[in-house]
Each structure stands twice: as structure tokens, then as C-alpha cells.
């Protein structure tokens, strides 16, 4: 699914966010990316999404060489991915339903089909009753569940979650992680970035340690 060969990312020609990263993540894996603040976790996810280009080295995502991918191909590739962030990143002026439906509109799914699939995924995260609420009317845990619903609605082959539990208390964090595990069981490759080593070890999944931009153990 993802291969990195000697990948480095240097910001402003001095901040070495990532250095000489080699790794391979297979289709269907659940990987925890663990490291302290500033280790380069978000940077790595941004390289995978194509929001950032690597300074050196090669990255392949689903067979695409991210150094030479066109804008249009990036858009198409992102439609196969789902994203969850610490700060949810929901569109404030759209309702829960619209925030999720939006992802499908972008791909050109028919109105009827959109309604069905959004309802399905809202049912999955148990938020069907909040469908016409706006993000600010929801609790943090609910907002994060909407974000997950949005990430899952187009059955992504790859799900990237960047500190999805950072702001949430333990019980709600568990619910979120459970949703990620569920998605993984349906064959979605999941990368979970977190600074919480304890959380990662309890999951008993593959862990990639990252420190000061390098892979450690």
C-alpha cells in the first residue's frame, strides 16, 4: 500500500522533520505511528496525502510515485483515502449530513445513493439522530465520530488518523479506536498516529516508532 525509500523532509531548508525513512505498509495492515510531539508524525501523513512533497527519497502510495503524480491523480487518489484529525476539521457551515454527503458529491455519486450511504455510515457511528445538527452543536466525541463517518463513507482503502483521540476522554477515545479497528476488519488499511505509547501497545498491532524525524524502536 505504502512504500518509502530514504525519505527526508526538510522545512525551510533547516528543520529536518523526517530523515532517511524506509518503510513498507501492506494492504489491510493496522499500523500505529508513535512518537513524541515534533517527531514528524503529521509530516509523514501529509507526505502520504500529497499535501507535502518530500525533499528527497521516493514515496509510493497505492502504486503512485508521489514525486511525479499530477494534481488530478492526487485528487483521484485522495478519494480512496479517509482522514481523521485531532481537531476534526468539519466544515462549520455545513450540517452533519452535508459534511459527509460532501465527500460523495465530489465523486459524483447520485443524490439517492448519497442519502442511503450517509445514513448507513451515520448509523455505524450512532449519530443518525444528529444528522441535521451543525458541528458546533455537537460534543467533541460526537464531532470526532462525524469525522470518522466522513472518512469511512467512501469505503477507503487507506484510513489516516492523526491523533484522533487527543482531545477526548478515555471512554470516548476507546469508542473512536473501536471504529478504526472495525474499519480495519473490513479490509481498510489504517495508520493511526499518536504520541500515546500506552494506547498503541494495548492495541497489539504493528507499531512504528518515530523520534526526531527518524524511525527508532
Amino acid at each position: 500500500m505504502i512504500q518509502m525509500y530514504g525519505v527526508s523532509k526538510i522545512y525551510n531548508s533547516e528543520i529536518k522533520a523526517l530523515q532517511g525513512i524506509n518503510l513498507s505498509i501492506e494492504r489491510g495492515e493496522f499500523v500505529c505511528l508513535v512518537g513524541p510531539s515534533g517527531a514528524g508524525k503529521t509530516t509523514m501523513l501529509r507526505l502520504i496525502t500529497g499535501f507535502e512533497k518530500s525533499t528527497s527519497g521516493a514515496i509510493y502510495v497505492d502504486g503512485h510515485d508521489m514525486n511525479y503524480i499530477s494534481k488530478r491523480e492526487i485528487s483521484l487518489l485522495r478519494r480512496k483515502m479517509g482522514f481523521v484529525f485531532q481537531d476534526f476539521k468539519l466544515i462549520k457551515t455545513k450540517t452533519v449530513f452535508e459534511n459527509i454527503a460532501f465527500v460523495l458529491k465530489v465523486i459524483g455519486v447520485k443524490e439517492q445513493e448519497i442519502k442511503r450511504r450517509v445514513a448507513d455510515v451515520l448509523n455505524l457511528v450512532e449519530l443518525l439522530n444528529k444528522s441535521s445538527s451543525f458541528p458546533h452543536q455537537l460534543s467533541c466525541g460526537e464531532q470526532q465520530r462525524v469525522a470518522i463517518a466522513r472518512a469511512l463513507v467512501n469505503n477507503p482503502v487507506l484510513l489516516l488518523a492523526d491523533e484522533p483521540t487527543g482531545n477526548l476522554d478515555l471512554d470516548i477515545a476507546k469508542e473512536i479506536i473501536y471504529l478504526l479497528l472495525q474499519a480495519n476488519e473490513r479490509n481498510t488499511t489504517v495508520i493511526l498516529a499518536t504520541h500515546n505509547n500506552h494506547l498503541a501497545t494495548t492495541l497489539k498491532k504493528r507499531i512504528i516508532y518515530l523520534d526526531k524525524g527518524k524511525i527508532g524502536s
Binding site: 499535501f51 494534481k71 485528487s75 483521484l76 466544515i91 462549520k92 465530489v106 465523486i107
Partner: peptide, 16 residues
């Protein structure tokens, strides 16, 4: 800005 970034994230083309 954020809204636009989200749209890019979910794979909307620049034209869309």
C-alpha cells in the same frame, strides 16, 4: 481556508 483544505483532502478537484 480550512474548508478548502478539507475539500482538497476528500479529493475534490480544484475546479470543483
Amino acid at each position: 481556508k480550512e474548508e478548502i483544505e478539507i475539500m482538497r483532502l476528500v479529493g475534490a478537484t480544484p475546479g470543483f
